[in-house]
């Protein structure tokens, strides 16, 4: 069930562990700052799972595209993911024009984007240290020793 987050965050809904956020109609340099301020705390959380609802978007400039890429980068760094939903034809054209359309997973609706996260339950993913930690753990020990 979706629930609105009240404290200081506008246009943001939670759906279980997935956060759905509306992207502003004019997603340009002026709006990007506010948007990033709103989304910032979420991006810093552990395994952020974010859906950006683009249904309202009518124009995106290069700053907007840069912001989307930055959000994606932050979520991936924290082992989370960011997906786009309800892309308007206008935003789709701009993302294609700027060669980033294929970088994002996009879904026709926010609900479908949220469900796509649930396709692989969080519990099914091992919460233990990743496979490479053994190798790099040893390396770190070597480095510290040196």
């Amino acid at each position: 069930m979706k629930q609105r987050i009240s404290k200081g965050v506008k246009n943001m809904l939670t759906s279980g562990p997935v956060v759905v956020m509306q992207v502003p109609e004019q997603f340009n340099a002026g709006e990007v700052r506010n948007f990033m301020e709103e989304l910032g705390p979420l991006l810093e959380s552990h395994r952020p799972r974010i859906v950006l609802d683009c249904s309202q978007v009518r124009s995106i400039d290069s700053a907007g595209v840069e912001a989307l890429l930055q959000c994606l980068e932050e979520t991936l760094k924290r082992d989370g993911d960011l997906k786009l939903a309800a892309l308007s034809p206008e935003s789709e054209v701009i993302l294609e024009l700027m060669r980033v359309a294929r970088v994002f997973e996009a879904y026709p609706t926010s609900d479908e984007a949220v469900r796509s996260f649930n396709a692989l339950p969080v519990d099914a993913v091992s919460q233990e240290a990743p496979w490479y930690s053994a190798v790099f753990g040893d390396l770190r020990a070597v480095k510290e020793a040196s």
Binding site: S59, D61, S62, E90, M98
Partner: peptide
């Protein structure tokens, strides 16, 4: 089938 005015002069 979309007509857009691109406000970003870099593009």
């Amino acid at each position: 089938g979309v007509s857009l005015k691109i406000s970003d002069p870099v593009v």
